[in-house]
């Protein structure tokens, strides 16, 4: 394999991806998909459009993990929201840029392989979308998948009840001296 061509190809895709992120979230703003009305009711950071976009995805990515402790996709979203508390404004801005982009059908098609919004897809269809998305070879799609799903796991499994569901017995008991 010619590594040089491979790398150049990757860099081009990366530049294209960054440009798409920038113009895509601009477009989303113009079309009203990314209106920033502040956090949704019951959330500290996620906006209403983020909840509608992400909750179905959390339901499928984290489904068996949530079911193990009788939790809902909404519980998974709340945990995700809690995780964002530690982040800096710049960290959150990058995430919101990606979420704004995913509001656009064309961007969903490019990143995930489907125009349909996540909310309009059945669990089976979402499973297929995730499988297609996982198999994508463009770097921006890979970034998006990792950027969205990696925090879902961390956010959920740091919750003590979820943590214990993995077989981890939990930490020792801290007693104030």
């Amino acid at each position: 394999m010619d590594q040089g061509i491979n790398r150049r190809g990757f860099l081009k895709l990366g530049a294209f991806g960054s440009a798409m992120l920038a113009t895509g979230s601009g477009l989303a703003l113009l079309s009203g998909c990314a209106s920033n009305d502040g956090p949704a009711t019951g959330y500290r950071y996620f906006r209403q459009q983020d909840i509608e976009l992400l909750t179905p995805l959390v339901g499928v990515v984290m489904g068996p993990a949530l079911a193990a402790v009788n939790a809902s996709a909404e519980d998974g979203m709340k945990a995700y929201d809690d995780l964002l508390e530690g982040a800096m404004p710049g960290t959150r801005a990058t995430l919101f840029q990606l979420l704004d982009l995913l509001q656009l059908g064309a961007a969903r098609w490019f990143l995930t392989g489907t125009w349909a919004s996540f909310a309009e897809q059945s669990d089976e269809q979402l499973q297929q979308t995730l499988a297609d998305w996982s198999a994508k070879e463009n770097s921006i799609a890979r970034m998006a998948l990792k950027g969205l799903t990696q925090p879902m796991h961390m956010a959920w499994y740091v919750k003590p009840e979820a943590a214990r569901s993995t077989g981890y017995p939990g930490p020792p008991k801290k007693i104030l001296a």
């Binding site: 990515v61 993990a65 995730l130 996982s134 796991h153 961390m154 956010a155 499994y157 943590a163 993995t166």
Partner: peptide
């Protein structure tokens, strides 16, 4: 620990859950 493990191991759905366990 459970958070770091699942974030690094990644994946989704049943496969991710089995690895978490």
């Amino acid at each position: 620990h459970p958070g770091l493990n699942t974030a690094l191991v990644g994946g989704y759905g049943i496969d991710a859950r089995q690895q978490a366990e």
